[in-house]
């Protein structure tokens, strides 16, 4: 489903990031571990098509990102990839529920309000549907962000340091939630992090 080969990227000529090849098929979720500065964020942006690699390619469902126009790539990403970031961000003027609906709208999917409410209930935010994102605690925000990424039923969830700013308790909850929801929607999960707490939670991991 997802395949990368010989990926490399450099911000300047003095240092070039090179990344191991990834092959994600019917297999399991993938944990990519790495310390600060090894290009974790760069890799996740290449995997999501936000950044083009200097060499090599990313291929998903048989489509190579570099063959897509910028507009098609936006739409491809919108409908197939859900992203979760270390700092969860929202459209601040919209309620949590409306953020989910906007995500559906932007990926050209049916704005199924019932399903959005159901998903928010599942991530434990049933009483925060109409709250503004600013009014949520950090753990709640992270859960809402996961719901926003998952609502459009992506085939791939890319999570960039989803747990680093959370305490152990919340960290565990978020990982469990991510794994649960990913398997529920039949999505593959890739987590990129320096958070060693996650090491034992995944069978497959790559060290950068």
């Amino acid at each position: 489903m997802l395949k990368t080969e010989r990926l490399s990227f450099s911000y300047n000529s003095s240092y070039i990031f090179t990344f191991p090849d990834i092959l994600l098929d019917q297999g399991e979720d993938l944990l990519i571990l790495g310390d600060s500065g090894v290009g974790k964020t760069t890799l996740i942006q290449i995997l999501s098509g936000l950044l083009s690699p200097q060499s090599g390619f990313v291929e998903m469902h048989g489509t190579r990102f570099q063959n897509l126009s910028s507009k098609s790539l936006d739409q491809f990403r919108g409908s197939h990839i859900g992203m979760v970031f270390q700092q969860s961000h929202f459209v601040r003027n919209l309620s949590v529920l409306d953020n989910l609906l906007l995500s559906l709208y932007l990926s050209n999917k049916l704005q199924d309000k019932k399903r959005a409410i159901h998903l928010l209930q599942e991530v434990g935010l049933s009483d925060k549907l109409n709250n503004m994102p600013d009014e949520l605690s950090q753990g709640e925000q992270q859960r809402a962000a996961i719901a926003t990424a998952l609502i459009k039923k992506p085939d791939l969830i890319l999570a960039d340091e989803p747990t680093s700013s959370l305490d152990d308790n919340n960290c565990q909850k978020i990982i469990t939630l991510l794994k649960e929801q990913a398997s529920l929607t039949n999505a593959k999960l890739i987590i990129i992090t320096h958070d060693q707490r996650l090491k034992d939670q995944f069978n497959t991991s790559i060290e950068l």
């Binding site: 507009k71 919108g78 409908s79 906007l102």
Partner: peptide
Amino acid sequence: RRRYELALMRVHGATRFQ
């Protein structure tokens, strides 16, 4: 203030035109 918001919308699949 909303730079991140706009970037986020692009991640969700918004086109430049939107």
